[in-house]
Design a protein around this nucleic acid. Structure first.
Lengths: 121, 121
DNA sequence: CTAGAACCTGACGCTGACGTCAGAGGCAAG
DNA sequence: CTTGCCTCTGACGTCAGCGTCAGGTTCTAG
């Protein structure tokens, strides 16, 4: 027998995840998120949708595209990967690491300027 | 007497800075870069234009807009700032720092998945 | 002198994650 | 019943840093 989960509507998902309703619909359109439908056609999400949406936001912030996230979602949910997915995971990781280094360099640059300009009032 | 500097054309600036010619023109349009003009109208840059362009790229990579860079350029070149500029500098610094933290979190997340999927062949 | 590379000024196109508007239906409260 | 909020499906708008094409001039090598 299937466990009776509490289903929530799109507004609640959006609010709890801190994104817009439009964004949540967009994730569905990109194949990242699926929802049951009420008889009247309203989307009904399981609780973990909120967690998923937060995860998407984190990946977007890290520079991944919807397509990449969609391709890597199985790794996340099933814990299993093929060679191509492992390669993508590593590529994204390296890209993010490089970006962190770039940002750190820019940060150091700004801190330099801040230090200098703080010394000259 | 003004020192006779070696002036370079836009193609050389772009090549040495690793960006497109279009990008260099764009920077001028955004008020980031100025150039003398040859009698025939070609842009002539001083050597340090290359350094500047690289700096712009670094700031762009850090998420600053053209407008922000333009507003902060005086700080960089003259070493002098007003209160507003100092506030902007700090705001950008904090934003970048936050972004670094976000990226680091995403990185840890991916590394987790990589570790797990490497264990399950 | 001539071919080709490099340069010029517009001006439209692109990308990706949404914002926003229009028009219509759904749902609990008073 | 109706008021008001939530939701639906399209579909066009946005923004920023360029890419790209058109149509023309200019510089440079041979």
């Amino acid at each position: 027998m299937t466990a009776r989960e509490r289903l929530v509507r799109i507004g609640e998902v959006a609010r709890e995840a801190g994104v817009s309703v439009r964004a949540v619909r967009y994730y569905e359109q990109q194949g990242l998120l699926t929802a049951e439908r009420s008889p009247s056609g309203q989307r009904l999400y399981r609780q973990d949708a909120v967690t998923l949406v937060r995860f998407f936001q984190q990946m977007y912030a890290a520079g991944l595209t919807s397509q990449r996230i969609a391709q890597l979602l199985p790794c996340w949910s099933s814990g299993h990967t093929d060679a191509e997915q492992r390669a993508m995971l590593r590529a994204e990781r390296d890209r993010i690491q490089a970006k962190v280094d770039d940002l750190q360099a820019a940060l150091d640059r700004l801190d330099e300027v801040i230090a200098i300009t703080d010394a000259h009032p």
